[in-house]
Simulated assay, not measured.
Amino acid sequence: MEKLEGALEQWPYFFESVFSLVNAVSAPLCRYFDPINPAVTQLIFHGLPRMSRWREALASRESFAATVGQDYPASFKQHLAERQAILAD
């Protein structure tokens, strides 16, 4: 995450202020954190303001929101629980 933080520099997206292929390819990483307990997510992104800004920029994109169904949070949590993942709570 720290390496990605450095790559974001001053823009909301990787390498520039417009959404590009590198953002589209990296966006699924961001998606995994959405259903996780917000307290845990805050700890993960603590001290990473650029990554947090990037997640917010992605979340504001209609195209990003439309990439998964409304059942995604519950489905992902079930997936974590079935695998007894630490983040399943």
Rank of each mutant, 00 (worst) to 15 (best):
Q78W: 03
F45K: 00
S17M: 07
A81N: 06
M1P: 13
K3L: 13
E9C: 12
L80A: 07
E2R: 15
F64H: 05
L80V: 05
F33G: 02
Q84V: 09
E56L: 07
R61T: 03
I44F: 04
L80T: 06
D34A: 03
T67S: 12
S17D: 14
Q42K: 11
A81M: 05
W54V: 01
A27S: 13
L80E: 07
N23L: 01
K3N: 12
W11F: 15
A59T: 02
D89H: 13
G47M: 02
E9R: 15
E9F: 10
L4Q: 08
Q78E: 14
H79S: 12
V18M: 12
E16H: 14
F45L: 07
E16V: 10
V68G: 02
L8Q: 07
E62M: 03
A59L: 08
L29P: 02
L4V: 08
Y72A: 11
S63K: 06
I86C: 05
G69T: 05
E56M: 02
K77S: 14
F76I: 07
F33E: 00
S63V: 04
L80I: 05
S17Q: 12
S26P: 03
A27V: 00
A88Q: 15
A66E: 10
Q78M: 04
S75Q: 14
L43A: 09
S63G: 05
S75M: 11
T41W: 01
Y32F: 09
E16L: 12
A57R: 05
A66M: 06
R50H: 09
A59H: 04
P28V: 01
K3M: 12
Y13E: 12
S60A: 12
E82I: 00
P38E: 06
S60V: 00
Y72C: 09
H79F: 15
N23S: 13
V18P: 05
P38C: 06
I44P: 00
I86Y: 12
P35D: 09
M51N: 06
Y32W: 09
L8M: 11
D89Y: 14
Y13M: 11
F76E: 11
E82F: 00
A59D: 04
R83S: 04
M1I: 09
F19V: 15
V22G: 09
N23T: 07
Y72T: 10
N23R: 01
I44E: 01
S60P: 01
A85Y: 08
S26M: 15
M1V: 09
I44D: 00
A39Q: 12
L87N: 13
A81K: 09
S52E: 03
L48W: 06
S26K: 02
A88R: 03
C30E: 01
K77G: 10
I36E: 08
L58G: 02
F14P: 08
E16Y: 13
M1C: 09
F64R: 02
N37A: 07
L87Y: 14
F45Q: 00
R31S: 03
P35G: 08
L8A: 08
V18N: 14
D71W: 03
E2D: 14
E5C: 11
R31Q: 11
Y32I: 01
H79T: 11
C30N: 01
A88I: 03
V25D: 08
V40E: 10
A24L: 07
P38R: 04
G6C: 08
Y72L: 10
A24N: 03
S17W: 06
L80Q: 06
V25I: 14
V25F: 10
V40I: 12
